[in-house]
Design a protein around this nucleic acid. Structure first.
Lengths: 145, 145
DNA sequence: TTGCGTGCAAAGGTTTTGCATGGCA
DNA sequence: TGCCATGCAAAACCTTTGCACGCAA
């Protein structure tokens, strides 16, 4: 059965995940961070373990900018039904929105449109306050005039 | 300058787009449909022309399931600032939500969270009424236990 | 005739898979 | 010892790009 053994790579990856709880990252982020730490871990292993954790529910997968998969460790996702995620199309940052209006929206979509919204999968897209202010990340997007 | 000539491939592709106005499709959908029709059009041409139209604003690009780009022809998008799109995670259908609450949400996100929501890019994910009723498309999703 | 448009093939990037080796229990 | 886990390389995929030829104006 998969995920049975406790190995060095798994422990290191779990450490990384806990340090970055609720943050989003790509497989490359993991690989390079591990390299910097002097830890040896293969790309396939990262893919495979993150996939396993995603199936178990402690990690979420999103398709981010340019089709690159973003992962996010979620220690306790009981609260996540209550809020949404926003992604900045400029800098790629993933943010959380804790807000009563989200709950209202969910109920409304169901009652008036028959659509059962999934807050875990839905990502609101737009531009974050920092990028609107002309801050960082302005070198990314703008792929449509 | 790009997009100057009127060619056979462009006319055929435009015909396809108009027949499927507001529907979503992938490059493969186009290629195979054209093949079935007996029309010859190269994959690169489809990519290039859709990209051009996306820049001009008559076509939208979304990153869909498994990182496959989905395109959508939008004859008149003046209304689209006012509504959102929902994607059913079961059958993959893209639906429109015309609803005052969306406008409220936009304003709220800006005023209370400093986030400038982009209704053209945002897709609400969930399960549509038909699939909830146990209808079609139930063979797709469920990629996480 | 000019130069944009097209199609093929190759390259580019991300993710998956096969297989031999290594390591946990 | 048995079998899962790992890492490498290769394959699979989608998308972009280079280049020679075709075709619209």
């Amino acid at each position: 059965m998969r995920g049975e053994y406790s190995t060095h790579q798994k422990r290191e990856l779990l450490k990384f995940l806990k340090e970055r709880n609720m943050q989003h990252f790509s497989v490359d982020d993991v690989v390079f961070e591990m390299q910097d730490r002097g830890e040896k871990i293969g790309r396939s292993t990262v893919y495979r373990y993150l996939e396993l954790l995603a199936e178990q529910g402690t990690v979420r997968k999103y398709t981010g900018v340019q089709g690159v998969t973003q992962y996010q460790h979620v220690e306790d996702d009981s609260q996540c039904d209550e809020h949404f995620h926003m992604m900045c199309s400029k800098c790629g940052d993933l943010l959380h929105v804790d807000c009563k209006l989200m709950h209202t929206l969910c109920r409304h979509m169901m009652e008036d449109h028959g659509f059962q919204l999934d807050p875990r999968e839905t990502i609101l897209v737009g531009v974050c306050a920092r990028c609107r202010a002309g801050g960082e990340g302005m070198d990314h997007g703008a792929d449509h005039a």
